[in-house]
């Protein structure tokens, strides 16, 4: 059987973040490496946050997706987590940023010093206005902050730059 890393990557674009189902793990920048070894395909992922409770689910889904797309036996697809490389929001792709916005989450703003503070301007992902205020540094998950748009009067979340 032909085992092509491009096909693996294409399959992984169908694996979504369980908490942001519009954005794939590829577009979040979580796929570090795909290696084809004689008896298996090894997918190396990096976690976004160390305490993220979704890592196990993501690994299972990635394994299933690749198994199905390439029609391989399950034991020929291995998923490993690596901490050699630190995940940062710079790894989110342009497509990822667009999908985040479509999902109602403002993509991580470019802050220079990589820290989201209340004085960093953030555009509302719903109406585009910049008249927004930080309500809470921590939103529904560790990687997001809670904001409020004074223009369209909606609360929304921002992915924190790290």
């Amino acid at each position: 059987m032909e085992k092509n890393p491009d096909q693996v990557m294409a399959a992984l674009t169908q694996v979504m973040d369980p908490e942001i189902p519009r954005v794939s793990i590829v577009d979040l920048g979580m796929v570090e490496r795909i290696s084809v070894v004689p008896d298996a395909i090894v997918i190396t992922l990096i976690p976004t946050y160390m305490g993220c409770p979704a890592t196990r689910l993501i690994a299972e889904r990635a394994q299933m997706q690749v198994k199905q797309a390439l029609q391989l036996p399950l034991d020929m697809v291995r998923v490993e987590w690596s901490t050699d490389v630190a995940w940062t929001t710079d790894r989110v792709t342009e497509t990822g940023r667009r999908h985040l916005k479509e999902f109602g989450i403002a993509p991580p703003p470019a802050t220079g010093n990589t820290l989201l503070t209340p004085d960093v301007p953030v555009s509302c992902p719903l109406c585009g206005a910049t008249t927004t205020t930080m309500e809470n540094l921590f939103g529904a998950t560790a990687c997001r902050s809670l904001y409020y748009c004074r223009q369209c009067k909606n609360p929304f979340e921002v992915m924190k730059p790290t």
């Binding site: 946050y49 160390m50 305490g51 901490t83």
Partner: peptide, 20 residues
């Protein structure tokens, strides 16, 4: 309630670091 959510995230981060 928002602080409750924030604290949960902070605690979750710290538990993740301890696990590392």
């Amino acid at each position: 309630v928002e602080e409750d959510v924030a604290l949960s995230s902070l605690a979750q981060d710290e538990m993740g670091h301890a696990a590392m």
